[in-house]
Design a protein around this nucleic acid. Structure first.
Lengths: 141, 141
DNA sequence: TTTTCTTGTTTGTACATACAACTAATTGTG
DNA sequence: CACAATTAGTTGTATGTACAAACAAGAAAA
């Protein structure tokens, strides 16, 4: 169609990976003010907003495998942001005051991230792209 | 806009990651017939089609960092698909017969991958999404 | 010509994520 | 009720990728 310096750019797998890597980089820059990368920040947000939430629900919301979620929680527990309480076969995850304190900063970083890519891509365009990508991810899942 | 079971789905970073993971999974399934995952297959394609190509160019085409490309090449060299020839400060990468033999299989896998997601997303839709994503990745880079 | 700068590549290390196998708790069934 | 099946979570291990630092070759400057 138009100029394209890689013959792979017509492959969704390739493009999706490329965008993911670029976004992760930008994200990490914006979330630096929180002292952690965006996955951890998303995790804290989730737990802050629903204390006692279970890993299973987190894994669904974040679209990550349970094992990955366990790993994320472990690290945040180690760093003093989260606590686990085992209840029967389930686990409840709670934020510590440290995590709640950080909440505003996380939200700020999130807003900054949005502002940054929205400016580069155009707000309309960015929102549409995000929605389209999300829908595709859901369809292919 | 419409129903959305995660509050993060409006975040490009989040959606892009999700799509990337889903696509990687599908890709790995399709590329299984080649005995390697898609990144390696893309690498072999690149080298097969331009024997002697340098890591720098590969890294640009694949949108990966040079260190990542070194790692990919190393592994393919170890498995007997590629050979490196050091020329001055640069490196030339050549395919072995084993890699050239595999070329058709790789292309087949690539076609199958395309067929698979094109069917699920719709051909038009898939192509447009791919182009949009690639463009966004370029813009944000 | 010697020194400094730049560029291409590699190496050490780290991180996010996944899968497969496992444990433990609950639910369903004979 | 006891045993099988399911479900929630965790652990061992592996993979793809990156950054920062090191290295080595060539180019530019002194």
């Amino acid at each position: 169609m138009e100029k394209c310096d890689s013959k792979y750019c017509s492959c969704l797998q390739f493009s999706a990976n490329a965008l993911s890597r670029v976004m992760t980089k930008i994200s990490d820059e914006e979330f630096a003010i929180t002292g952690m990368s965006s996955s951890y920040a998303f995790l804290l947000m989730t737990v802050n907003e629903k204390p006692g939430v279970q890993p299973k629900e987190i894994s669904q919301q974040m679209m990550l495998t349970p094992s990955t979620v366990t790993r994320l929680i472990e690290k945040m527990e180690y760093r003093g942001f989260l606590e686990r309480k085992h209840v029967g076969r389930t686990t409840e995850v709670y934020p510590t005051p440290k995590s709640l304190d950080l909440h505003p900063k996380i939200q700020e970083a999130w807003r900054n991230l949005y502002a940054r890519y929205a400016e580069l891509l155009g707000k309309e365009n960015a929102d549409k792209l995000t929605a389209d990508i999300y829908e595709a991810a859901r369809t292919l899942e």
